Simulated scan of single mutants.
Amino acid sequence: MGAPGRSSEQDSSTTARAVVAPRVELAGANLLRTIAVLAVLYSHISFYLIDDRGEGWWVIDVVYRVLIEDAGLNNHLSFVGVAIFMLLTGLLVTRSAMRQTRRDFAVSRLSRLVPALWVSIALAIVLVRLGINGMFSGQPGISNSEAALSFVLGGFFLKPEVAVLGVTWTLTVQLMFYLYCVAARDLLRKWPVVVPLLGAALCAAVLVYNLYIPQPWSVPMLSKIAATLPTLFLGQIIYLGWARIIGWRMVVVGVLAQAEVVRLATDVHAYWAGDQYLWTIVVVTGLVLLLGRYDGRIGNLWIVRWTGTRSYAIYLVHTLILYRVYENVVPYTGPTGAVLAFVLVTAGVSEAVYRWVETPAATWLNGRLRTGGGAARRS
C-alpha cells in the first residue's frame, strides 16, 4: 500500500476519534467477570455431577435451593455466566466500534480472542486423539477436516454438529456481534439506537426462518446465535444510555425489543435449559447495572483482579480439565476435594495461557496490524 492509502487511513482514524462516544468507567468489570466465571464453572460442574455421574454435592443443594428454587434462575445456573460475559462485551466494545476504524476495531478484537482460541482448540484435538478426553458432540473422534473447521468455529454449523471444545460456541456469537458492529458502523455513529433495534429484528427473522424452513435448509446454530445476541445488544443499550448518547425512552424501546426476541426464542425452543431465560437475563442485567460502576474493596481484591483478567483463558480451558481431574481425584478426596483440585489445575493452565499466549499475542498483533499507532491503542 502506498502513502496515499496510509494517509486515508489516518484521516479515517482521526474522524473516528471525533465521534462523541464518552468513556464510561466500569470499575466493577472484574468483579462481574469473576461472578461470571464462578457461574460458568458451577454450571459445568453441576451438569457433570447430576446429569453424567448421577451424583450430588452439598454446594449444588445450596445453589439449587437459593438461586434456582427461590430466585427462579435457570437450572444448573445455565446461561448466567454467559449472559454476564455477553452483556459486558456489548457494554465495553460499543465505544470502540464507534470511535475506531473498522480495521483497528477488528484487529483489536481478534488479536485478543484468536491466539488463545487456537491454542485451546489444538489442545482439545490432541486430548481427543490421545483418548484422554472425548468430544463435546456425539462423535467418537475428530477427522482432519473437522479439526481444521474447528479452528474457525465451523464445526458448530455442520449437521450433525461437531464440537471438540464445546464452550467456544459463545465465540461465534461474539464474532457475529463484532461483524455486525463493523458493518453497521456508520449507523452506530449517526443513529446509534437503530443498531440494537435492527439487530433485534434480524435475530427475530433468523428464529422465524429456522422455525418454518424445513431441513436441509435450516441452520440450527443460527438460532442459538440469534437467541444469545440480545444480551450483547442489551449491553450496547446500557452503554448508550450511561453515556447519554440516547435518552431513556429509546433505552426502554431498545430493551423491550430485546426482551421480545428472548420471548420468541423461548417459545420456539431455541434455548437448551428450560424456559427461565428471560427472567435470568433480567436478573443478570440488574446485576450488571448494580455492580458495573462499583469501586469498593471487594472489587479490588487480588483474587478478583486475577480472575477477571484471566476470565477468557479460564473460560477456554476449564472443560478440558474438569472431567479427567475430577474422576481421578474424587476417590481419594470426595467431591469437594476433587472440585478444589480442578480449580487449582485450571488456575495454573489459565495463567499460562494468559501470560504466554493471550497477552503477548494481542500486544504483538496490535502493534503490527493496527493503523492508529499508540493513540488508537489507548482509545
Rank of each mutant, 00 (worst) to 15 (best):
L117P: 07
Y209G: 10
F342P: 09
P331Q: 03
F177R: 13
L187A: 11
V339R: 04
Q236N: 13
A352P: 01
F342M: 10
D275T: 14
V66N: 02
R370A: 08
T101S: 11
L188A: 00
Q236V: 12
K159R: 14
W58R: 14
V66K: 02
V353T: 06
D186K: 10
V128K: 01
L179P: 04
M86E: 07
W306N: 08
P220N: 12
A352G: 07
N300C: 13
R293A: 10
L202N: 01
V251T: 15
V37Q: 01
L187E: 11
P192A: 00
N328A: 10
S108Q: 03
A148R: 08
T336I: 10
S12D: 15
Q174G: 11
A27C: 12
L77W: 03
P230K: 01
F136K: 06
D11Q: 13
I225Y: 06
K224N: 10
M98C: 12
S12W: 03
V268Y: 11
A71C: 09
D70W: 05
T280H: 04
Y180F: 12
P214R: 05
Q10D: 07
V173P: 07
R244I: 07
P196Q: 00
V339Y: 03
A243F: 03
V349E: 01
Q100H: 10
M250V: 12
V262F: 02
R65F: 09
I314D: 00
L175S: 11
V24N: 07
I321T: 11
V261F: 13
D52K: 12
V262T: 07
T336C: 07
V345Y: 02
A226K: 02
W279H: 14
L32F: 04
M250T: 10
F136V: 14
M98D: 01
L91E: 02
E69C: 05
L188D: 00
L92G: 14
V195S: 05
L49F: 11
I238T: 06
G241E: 11
A83D: 01
A376C: 13
L211A: 13
P335K: 12
D70R: 08
Y48A: 03
G367K: 07
R17L: 14
R368I: 10
S12T: 14
H44T: 15
G373E: 00
S137R: 03
C203Y: 01
P230F: 01
T280I: 12
